[in-house]
Design a protein around this nucleic acid. Structure first.
Lengths: 233, 233
DNA sequence: ACAGATATTATGTCTATACATAATAAAACG
DNA sequence: CGTTTTATTATGTATAGACATAATATCTGT
């Protein structure tokens, strides 16, 4: 059976996805080979290959040489999170962005941060505390360690005009990161900074950003009560 | 200048990424055309095209016909979140998984859920409340609405042996979803279900799962205190 | 029956060529 | 001078053919 007509690899990709989602190709099942599919769709094998690779990348298929292509048993649901840039997030709401640097010093980070950043035991690095404001109201509290051993230029910055994250985006290449979401109770420091009560439930987002094998920066962002982080996939 | 040797599209992709991250190709800058790069790397244009498409998909490049390929100004950091399957998450920790169905009924969902699921005003659908246990201790509280108008089979299920999420994964094809993370304070119901105090900071994860234009299920997962959701990208 | 060598197979990738398509620049026109 | 038409260009995609590679199946000798 030849489908003929719609044979861009994207069309084929959609057809493949439809068959998987519609359980026409059940989880765990071996699907036809590229050559067979090429025949069915009336196109070249390369076209099928491109489509299958894309579907596999999205996590729906497992492909192995000689063994063939199999529908994933439990398609691990993947969602793509676009990590918000605070300024843009606030400005998109039509609010005015501002930020205040609360403190800046070179410090030996606590053990948890030190191990996460893979630093020596007595290494002192740059530590910042800042508050980001939306229309003058506290939006998010930031605690940030910057690996100034790896990025000595950071020590020359005041981070008064430009916030640390944006400076890092411009000046420090990165290759990846680890992220942790959690909910915490406001302590005295956070309650004061975010103008809320002690014990309030706060959304916290910690991230450790890497460049190859070097940790560049470790940030702990604690949002004012009511914050919601949205995404889709 | 010909690089020669390493010419699989993956190698080229890595070289491209290195040039972007190393600011050799600065943000906003136009990079060489595919033909020029093919010449430089000593390979076919198709190979360069495959590499550039992949890098563009990762969010580092903007490509436009005739206009060329440009490094993204502010590379929107993307992270991939693998949405945890509760049973697997618990079992991976070496703990014993169990779940208890607290209630099951057909109900008209509250306005917030109704609009999210795009339902008629008086539509009654299946509503479940359940608790998932790790070694007998409350792990996460689940409130779930299932679009039983779209999935009438769900009404025949008891969800006593198999939990709703796993049943849905097996029986309902889906094409996407919306997700919201937040931190909330435990109310009386949640405090009791999760065996914690009223006012405790809890991590909440709401998701609305779609199949094409139909909402399949809306779930609100509230985790016991101390829970952290991790991912990387 | 078993270990090791050999053949087979499906995917992975590259190449050269061709044509399609979208965006832009240049030319023609009123 | 502004607007429409035409040409140009870079990317998008398809194709057939070739060879590479990993995983499996089969054969072989002891």
């Amino acid at each position: 059976m030849t489908v003929g007509q719609a044979t861009s690899w994207q069309d084929i990709q959609n057809e493949i996805l439809k068959r998987i989602m519609g359980r026409e190709w059940a989880p765990g099942e071996l699907i036809p080979t590229e050559v067979e599919l090429a025949e069915e769709f009336g196109c070249a094998r390369a076209t099928i290959n491109r489509a299958l690779q894309s579907v596999a990348e999205q996590g729906w298929l497992d492909r192995k040489r000689k063994a063939g292509t199999r529908v994933k048993e439990q398609p691990e649901r993947k969602a793509t999170l676009k990590i918000p840039i605070i300024r843009r997030e606030i400005e998109k709401q039509g609010k005015k962005y501002a930020h205040t640097l609360l403190s800046s010093a070179q410090k030996v980070p606590p053990a948890k941060v030190r191990t996460a950043m893979n630093l020596d035991e007595d290494a002192a690095i740059l530590f910042l505390r800042a508050i980001h404001l939306s229309n003058g109201k506290p939006y998010v509290h930031e605690r940030r360690w910057i690996n100034s051993l790896f990025l000595p230029d950071a020590l020359d910055e005041t981070f008064a005009d430009e916030n640390a994250n944006e400076w890092l985006l411009r000046n420090a290449p990165f290759t990846g990161g680890d992220f942790v979401f959690s909910a915490i109770s406001a302590d005295a420091t956070l309650a004061k900074a975010l103008e809320t009560e002690i014990g309030a439930a706060l959304f916290q987002f910690r991230r450790n950003t890497w460049n190859e094998d070097n940790s560049i920066t470790y940030a702990e962002l604690t949002y004012a009560p009511g914050y919601e982080m949205q995404f889709n996939g």
